[in-house]
Design a protein around this nucleic acid. Structure first.
Lengths: 155, 155
DNA sequence: GTAAACTCGTCAACGTGGTTGTCGAAACAG
DNA sequence: CTGTTTCGACAACCACGTTGACGAGTTTAC
């Protein structure tokens, strides 16, 4: 019953492995549902755009990255057909980014798949332990505005 | 009281936020202890190398990335002084990668900082909830050989 | 009303962490 | 001895992030 990892490393590794497991299964499943080119970053960005749309600068702020980085991600999303850019009639500088029906479908499918994956965790652990895990994490993570602050944390 | 996030998205977001919080604090603290250029990837790679050393191909397999990618990471680690390459006398093709004293120091500091961060979680949640969180995750993540499979999951 | 300040999107250059394909040299299996 | 495998390296490429600069449009201050 060894702490196979040096004690300190286990907690971050477990969190990462849990996240990875969910994300990998999400994308494997998304691929079979008409979204083979979706990537983790796309989901984050599209949630930052939201149903009401947003500008690239706004997306950058919500995601904690530069507006240039957000702009490039929007380029890729647009190339995949997940979003479209629309001129803002009230401000000639701004270009509103809006989710396309394809983008909304991707988001809806993701939510449905995540629900299914969470249900699998409940099967293995019981509902009480899963809600306990969630509430523990909610307590300990610094509450950020949008979903989560996702800077260039690995680059 | 709101499930501010669409229900399905919250669990992966919490896991990611928890991981991020630990990693960010680790590197902020590492920077003040003589390791300002350390990156998350470096820690993973150096753990894959291990105290006994390893070849680049081996590191790649343990990390779940190509030998070329592992080789490039080793290049960067070597440039920072964290590892060194040594010719293998028994096999002229192989070059053993070994942790330098600086590399070992970085790993030791990391373990110590992670212990401290975990202690902070225990302060907030109590020891029982933290061990419960860990055991829940251990149950639900597919046990991988090395620390964790870390492919090009975000790229 | 005009001048200054700010904001938006974009372009360019670059760093880092991945990928595939190719290759010569060395080791191994028959 | 010959064929297969493995090692490390090189090259080209992609995704995602960074700074810095810039023109154009909007806002604020005077």
């Amino acid at each position: 019953m060894p702490p196979a990892d040096p004690p300190g490393f286990e907690l971050p590794l477990l969190l990462f492995a849990g996240f990875r497991a969910l994300i990998d299964e999400l994308h494997a499943e998304l691929a079979t549902r008409g979204h083979p080119d979706a990537r983790p970053v796309h989901g984050f960005a599209m949630q930052a755009i939201g149903p009401a749309g947003a500008t690239a600068s706004e997306v950058g702020r919500r995601l904690g990255v530069s507006k240039q980085a957000a702009g490039k991600t929007v380029d890729r999303l647009a190339a995949l057909g997940y979003v479209e850019r629309v001129d803002d009639p009230h401000d000639a500088r701004r270009k509103l980014i809006r989710l396309t029906p394809l983008g909304l479908d991707m988001l809806a499918q993701s939510a449905e798949i995540f629900d299914r994956l969470r249900a699998r965790w409940v099967e293995k652990l019981g509902a009480e332990r899963v809600t306990s895990l969630e509430s523990s994490l909610r307590t300990v993570v610094p509450a950020t505005g949008f979903p989560v602050d996702v800077p260039g944390w690995f680059g």
